[in-house]
């Protein structure tokens, strides 16, 4: 009963809606899920078992939505991976195979760092104050990525071919590694990968596309690893709220990815940088004085 009171159904809806949007917008979902409860005076702590269980469900929903959204791309990419394994090499003309291996190479460092450091970083930076400070820094990072970006030359080829051609193996490892910064609440995974893509020479649209493709296995695997907690003892009293939160998260994640893919056709990360910087700074000051 106490658990149900901590994440009531209305709170589950709010947190689910927020998770779906903030996971894909480059604004740090973890940071928001730490800061918002504190601003609203909710007695929720990000390291509480029931809250982690709740987040598992919403993350899984986001990963499923991403997978469905890019379903056709994943089929092509997986076929490309299969072809390259069969041929024991990557045909330079096979952009699906190259993109697939870029995603594998980018996923490994982020996955390993996540497996080994997640618990420690979460415990070390669990407070809303630190999340607000890191959200401010996230804004600066996004802006820096826009400043440091290498302009992608326009070419008459499809998005995946362009990503496969522009990104080197080293760049993919680098982008995958910076993804791990999102283990610290306040820093955004999609922001880090989009920023990395821009610095590596991708356009905003292609950087966003690569970031979403790269996010799918990481978010999905992290959620699946913790799924036993949802169905085990830790999930008692929170499963209903988790289900509602997951459905809300799925809905907003779908709208968010559709919106962002169109948004980045013509726009940049700058509005998100301004938002993160100003919201993070305002929250930092608020927490310091309140």
């Amino acid at each position: 009963m106490i658990l149900a009171a901590l994440i009531s159904y209305p709170r589950a809806i709010v947190l689910g809606l927020l998770q779906g949007v903030s996971e894909l917008f480059p604004v740090s979902s973890l940071g928001h899920s730490v800061i918002l409860p504190r601003l609203l005076g909710w007695n929720i702590h990000q390291n509480d078992k029931y809250f982690v269980t709740f987040l598992v469900a919403t993350h899984l929903a986001t990963a499923i939505v991403l997978f469905i959204f890019f379903w056709r791309d994943w089929v092509r990419i997986l076929k490309g991976l299969g072809r390259s394994l069969r041929d024991r090499g990557i045909d330079p003309a096979d952009s699906d195979a190259k993109l697939g291996w870029l995603l594998v190479v980018g996923t490994i460092p982020a996955g390993l760092l996540g497996l080994l450091l997640e618990q420690k970083l979460r415990s070390a930076f669990a407070s809303a104050q630190s999340a607000a400070i890191f959200l401010t820094l996230n804004g600066l990072l996004l802006y820096a990525a826009e400043l440091l970006r290498r302009r992608a030359p326009l070419a008459d080829e499809d998005d995946d071919a362009r990503i496969a051609r522009r990104l080197t193996w080293r760049a993919a490892v680098g982008i995958g590694t910076v993804q791990a910064i999102a283990l610290i609440p306040g820093f955004s995974r999609s922001g880090a990968t989009m920023g990395g893509g821009l610095v590596a020479g991708l356009s905003n649209k292609n950087a966003a596309r690569f970031a979403f493709l790269l996010a799918t296995p990481i978010i999905g695997a992290a959620a699946i690893l913790k799924l036993p907690e949802l169905f085990g003892h830790a999930g008692d009293g929170v499963r209903g709220q988790a289900l509602i939160g997951a459905l809300c998260s799925a809905g907003t994640a779908f709208l968010a990815v559709r919106f962002l893919m169109r948004f980045f056709e013509t726009r940049t990360l700058t509005p998100f940088a301004i938002y993160c910087f100003s919201a993070g700074l305002a929250c930092t000051i608020w927490f310091a004085v309140s």
């Binding site: 041929d87 090499g89 870029l102 497996l115």
Partner: peptide
């Protein structure tokens, strides 16, 4: 820790698989 070791081990096998493939004008394996 086990998953991390397994993934790196699998990566080693994939590397060996690509390295022992037929020599053709293809992109270097990851």
């Amino acid at each position: 820790h086990g998953i991390a070791a397994f993934v790196i081990g699998l990566g080693c096998f994939v590397f060996a698989w690509f390295r022992t493939g037929p020599k053709r004008p293809m992109t270097t394996a990851p």
